Amino acid sequence: MTRIFNSSKFLQPTDGEPIRSVVTESKDAVVVAWYIKPGQEIAPHIHPHGQDTWTILSGKGKYYLDQAGTTKPIFAGDVVVAHNGCVHGVFNHDDEPLVFISVVSPADAGYELVAIETMSLDTSP
């Protein structure tokens, strides 16, 4: 069984919705590579039965924190954790791609979109 993966081989830039590219999956976790172009977003959502941990490899974005639309800047080198049921998502407001690895655990954590009440993006750097 393969245990070492080159994440760059899984990145799939697209002009439409960002592509959820599964690197590996087991009952314990799903590892996904994300390539978010400038102006693209992963819509705010929750995993009702698990955690989503992102490791930001390059770029930056505005990370959704709650249903009110509050965001916080995230940058290359950050590890961002959305615990069970926490709203999260990201908007790439920069002119460079945002690239990160997501680990959802357990694999059957579920996925539910969340309607944002207001779209007031944090303007801090």
Rank of each mutant, 00 (worst) to 15 (best):
T2L: 13
A115N: 15
V103P: 00
L57Q: 10
D122G: 04
M119E: 12
A68G: 00
D94L: 01
K62D: 06
D95G: 03
G69C: 02
I4W: 04
E17L: 15
P106Q: 05
S26Y: 13
D66A: 02
H88S: 04
I116P: 12
P18N: 07
P44W: 04
Y111G: 11
D122N: 10
E25S: 15
G61A: 06
P48H: 07
F91A: 03
P73W: 10
Y63F: 09
F10Q: 07
V114P: 09
P44C: 05
V99S: 06
K9L: 14
V23L: 09
S102W: 08
A109V: 13
S21C: 07
D66W: 09
L11I: 00
G39T: 11
A33I: 09
K27P: 10
H49P: 00
I19M: 13
L11R: 07
P38N: 07
V80A: 02
F75Y: 05
A29P: 00
S26K: 15
V104K: 12
K72W: 00
S8N: 12
T14V: 15
P44E: 05
E117Q: 15
D122V: 00
P44K: 04
T2A: 11
T2P: 13
H88D: 02
I46S: 07
V81I: 14
Q40V: 09
F75S: 05
F10K: 11
T53W: 00
V104N: 01
L98P: 08
S102T: 14
Y64W: 10
I116D: 14
P73Y: 08
H83F: 08
K37V: 01
A115F: 10
N84K: 14
F5Q: 12
G50L: 01
I101S: 12
T14N: 15
I74A: 06
R3G: 13
A76V: 01
Y111E: 05
N84V: 15
N6I: 05
Y64S: 06
R20H: 13
V30C: 09
T2M: 11
S26E: 15
S105A: 15
H88V: 05
G69H: 03
L57P: 03
D94I: 02
D122R: 04
I74D: 01
E17V: 12
G110K: 02
E25W: 09
D28C: 04
D15C: 10
M119A: 05
G77S: 07
W34T: 09
P38G: 10
I42M: 15
E17H: 13
